[in-house]
Every structure is written in structure tokens, then in C-alpha cells.
């Protein structure tokens, strides 16, 4: 399927959940309403014509305009087509439903996005930090991140 066809079939099914799409981008992407990502993901994964069974990557984003985002790079191993999903949420209310039930690999990626961006993935089975210590303050990849002065008595910024 081409990107346009994928977008069309998603629009046909989830009309209002598709916020924005860009089929002519180098890697075409669709922006989804955050609260609908789970069902869109489930549909993309299960639908036999789409069969997006492989979540290549899941990245957190800070758009530096009060919005945080999550970018899903999807791939179908069966049909060999690709699509990028994006969601964005306000920084103060950074909640996105988890897709780890759809793609198992999302588990660790979402933990990483939570760790580094502070995006909370609702329904995540194991919502812990992954790279940083459990008692670290703040989320370092946010553009407005201020590093803490001391960590257990050790001076952090040097």
C-alpha cells in the first residue's frame, strides 16, 4: 500500500481521530488524537491489508511549544510498507495511552520516553524509569530541563 492508501483507509475508519497527515513527506506521517492511539494501533496491527506488525521505533519528542510528542515508526514485514504515526500532548497533561499491548517492543521504548521526557503512558504494565536511577529528578531530554544540583550528595553539574 502507498502512504496515501494507508491514510485513506485510516481516515475512512477513524475519521475524527486523524488530526493531520502528510502523505508527501519523505516519510509520510499521520497525526492521531492521543486518546485514540491504542485503537488505531490495534487496527493497523490486525488489519490484514495493513498488517503493521513491526514497531521499528518509538521516540519521545519535545516540540518546545508546550507540546510533547510521541512518534511511532511502523513497518509491515508482510507487505513491506511503512507509515509514521505522531501524537502530541500538552506538557502539563502529558498522558498517552500505552501501545505495549499491541506491540510488545513498545514496553521499553515507552519506559524510555517516560524516563527522558516525562510522558506518562497510561496502562503501561511496568511504568518505571529505565536508563536513569529511580530517584532522579526531572526528565533530561525536555528542552527546559534543569539538572539537579546534587544527587545523593554528589555534585551533578561540573
Amino acid at each position: 500500500m502507498t502512504a496515501q492508501e494507508i491514510i485513506d483507509s485510516l481516515t475512512a475508519r477513524f475519521g475524527d481521530a486523524i488530526v493531520e497527515s502528510k502523505p508527501d513527506a519523505m516519510q509520510p506521517w499521520i497525526r492521531i488524537a492521543p486518546d485514540r492511539i491504542q485503537e488505531v494501533g490495534r487496527f493497523l496491527h490486525d488489519d490484514l491489508a495493513l498488517r503493521m506488525d513491526y514497531l521499528s521505533s518509538l521516540s519521545g519528542m519535545d516540540y518546545n511549544n508546550g507540546q510533547l510528542g510521541v512518534v511511532y515508526h511502523l513497518q509491515s514485514l508482510v507487505h513491506k510498507h511503512r507509515i509514521v504515526l505522531k501524537v502530541s500532548v500538552p506538557k502539563e497533561q502529558a498522558h498517552v495511552p500505552t501501545v505495549s499491548g499491541v506491540w510488545g517492543t513498545a514496553n521499553w521504548h515507552e519506559r524510555e520516553a517516560f524516563d527522558l521526557f516525562g510522558i506518562v503512558f497510561d496502562g503501561h504494565p511496568d511504568p518505571r524509569r529505565i536508563l536513569l536511577p529511580d530517584d532522579w529528578e526531572g526528565h533530561p531530554l525536555r528542552k527546559d530541563y534543569q539538572v539537579q544540583e546534587f544527587y545523593h550528595g554528589m555534585k551533578v553539574p561540573y
Binding site: S57, S59, G60, T105, W108, L141
Partner: peptide
């Protein structure tokens, strides 16, 4: 699959680079 998701804001340094490491993902299983 070693992927880099590079985002630009027009400046001389990347706005965001996400490294998708195969070892990270493989280890999660």
C-alpha cells in the same frame, strides 16, 4: 535494525536524535 530518527529545526545542530539500538530492543525480549 539500527535506526536514527533525526529531526531538524533549521539550526546547525540536530533538534532531536533518537537512536533505536537493536541491542536495546532485542534485550527487552
Amino acid at each position: 535494525e539500527l535506526g536514527f530518527y533525526v529531526v531538524s529545526d533549521g539550526s546547525a545542530s540536530p533538534y532531536r536524535v533518537k537512536a533505536r539500538g537493536p541491542a536495546f530492543v532485542n534485550l527487552s525480549v
